[in-house]
Amino acid sequence: MSLILENVSYIYSPDSPYETRALNDISFRIEKGEAVGLIGHTGSGKSTLLQLINGLLKPDEGSIEIAGYTITKDSKNLTDLRKEVGLVFQYPEYQLFEETVAKDIAFGPKNQGLSEEEVNQRVKEAMDLVGLDESYCEKSPFELSGGEKRRAAIAGVLAMKPKILMLDEPTAGLDPAGREQLLKQLMNLKGNDMTLIFISHSMEEVSKIADRILVLSAGKLVLDKPVDQAFEEEEFLTSVGLDLPVLARFFARMREKGCVYKSNYFRLEDALKVLLEGEDA
């Protein structure tokens, strides 16, 4: 099941002085199981793009195709689409509202009209996926720590068993420990054959999780490449206000000084291999 965007444009507040073209003629295709990092400046249209793919916004031009659904300007009734595509908003912990964590996570599957048994099963699975054990079930979501709240909120979306999971800056505002844990769980999800699309401002995170990078700048898709190739384009990334992960930057500088490395390595394992064992391939 792939996701196909064709010439998608979106305009905010048309016919008012605030009118802005948030997205301009975006086309790409994402295959099942891919992990895609979506990066770009604040206001480049990343969040808008995720909302379009979830059917919360509709494109003013172009079309989006997912799992047999086609979203265009005139699409209606996209509730079923949201079973296929899960969206975790920025700071999702602010959407928690139920008395207990379990009830809150059950909100999504309940809305899907599943049986109580199935709902409970889904809640348990989702909590497992984000690493919350059973002791959290009966706790109030408001007494959890920031990182735990975040994970509970993500579990609320995972419980709907989406085939595509989209996250808007999932690690923003978490402490280092919470961040590490969340990243690890995202890696696990990736292993579970789920398609991941996530927004991040941290190149380090992107380099850890993503296989492919999409760069948005002022509403346009300006780069769409596999991670290792994207990190070869330092000059271009700098020109749109982004930078390389520290490790890749290190290799880029070394190559400038005349060291012959084949690539701007960004994974620790690769870098160690190259530096310690001289294996440059």
Binding site: N54, L56, T79, R82, L87, F89, Q95, F107
Partner: peptide, 13 residues
């Protein structure tokens, strides 16, 4: 608007 959308993304109607 954001909260509404977030709950809609979880299937709220």
């Amino acid at each position: 608007d954001k909260i509404m959308k977030a709950q809609m993304a979880r299937g709220a109607d």
